[in-house]
């Protein structure tokens, strides 16, 4: 329990550092929020008035304090481009993107683990070659390429899935999964590559261990030996890598959501960056960082359940 508290404390500390950095960076960026709102041709007095009312003339420390205070109380400010409260905007988009994150990771794990195990069991045979070239293909091609392939194959030729668009999960959950499937599949194929290689290498190491020989000497079937004895040991490192990939996934999501016209967090971040919507940029960076850190904390806690040798503390 102290371990969890310690880890939470360090997550909070890191998040605090992140707010400092994002605040500093967005304030160093050239451009003036008031001018962005009112346009470059606006009346200087009105501009000054807006600055005053937005608190842009306050000392930086005060501005930072106001922002943090808002973050904590749920008042995340108003987006400049969408003219909506950021908290509301994020809450809606975050759910849409969470669907993609979970779905793509599930697809990746469901493909990668069997493929990696298969390659490890048939190490140095044709199955291994097939598996490693498949994953090499996955790593070497950029995500958006898979996005284009998905659109061509499943939307254009087969017509099974829509090529773009989104359904809000609050309206129709099944339909929202249907719309999220293609971008998730494209992301999943990219993620799968690393996970396959990781599964293969940990499984190869574990299959060479003495306790596997002992399990076979007990007369257990190959299926039990591989899928229970060996995989129970290999899954920990694979899940750790999967957790780390959540961070990378957010980078890919920005591209993929824009490609599929899927208006989630990634798309929102892209819009914010494109339009210098500083309050929105700050908020999205903060949310993404928080999600990545909490996922990794959860993965570490999960590891404790998987591997009894790992002790908390």
């Amino acid at each position: 329990m102290t371990y969890v508290l310690n880890r939470l404390l360090s997550v909070i500390l890191t998040l605090f550092l992140i707010t400092l950095v994002t605040f500093a960076v967005t304030n160093i960026l050239p451009g003036d929020v008031a001018m962005m709102i009112m346009g470059t041709q606006s009346n200087p007095e009105a501009l000054e008035g807006l600055r005053q009312s937005l608190g842009l003339n306050d000392p930086l420390l005060v501005q930072y304090g106001n922002w943090i205070g808002g973050l904590l109380t749920g008042d995340w400010g108003t987006s400049l481009i969408f003219k909506k409260p950021i908290a509301e905007l994020l809450a809606q988009k975050a759910v849409a993107s969470a669907i993609i994150v979970v779905m793509s990771m599930t697809i990746a794990l469901c493909l990668a683990v069997p493929l990696g195990v298969w390659a490890a069991v048939h190490r140095d045979r044709w199955q291994d070659t097939v598996s490693s070239s498949t994953s090499l293909l996955g790593v070497s091609l950029p995500d958006f390429f898979w996005g284009i392939v998905m659109i061509l194959v499943f939307a254009r030729w087969l017509g099974w899935f829509p090529s773009s668009g989104i359904v809000e999960p609050s309206e129709d959950f099944l339909a929202s999964l249907y719309y999220a499937f293609l971008p998730s599949l494209a992301l999943g194929l990219g993620l799968m590559a690393h996970l396959t290689r990781m599964t293969r290498s940990t499984m190869t190491g574990i299959l060479g261990q003495e306790f596997i020989r002992v399990a076979r000497a007990k007369g257990l079937t190959e299926r039990t030996v591989i899928w229970r004895y060996a995989l129970a040991n290999a899954i920990g490192p694979v899940i750790t890598i999967a957790g780390l990939q959540i961070g990378y996934l957010f980078g890919s999501i920005i591209v993929m959501e824009s490609l599929f016209g899927y208006t989630g967090m990634g798309w929102l971040t892209y819009q914010a960056l494109l339009n210098r919507d500083l309050p929105l940029i700050q908020a999205t960076v903060f949310v993404i960082a928080a999600v990545v850190m909490i996922t990794n904390l959860l993965v570490d806690l999960l590891y404790v359940l998987i591997d009894p040798r790992v002790k908390l503390g």
């Binding site: 306790f211 040991n233 591997d307």
Partner: peptide
Amino acid sequence: RGNEIGMIFQEPMTALNPV
């Protein structure tokens, strides 16, 4: 295996499944 013939190996440290 394991039923009519039992086997013991060299390395007790790695002969048991750690999880």
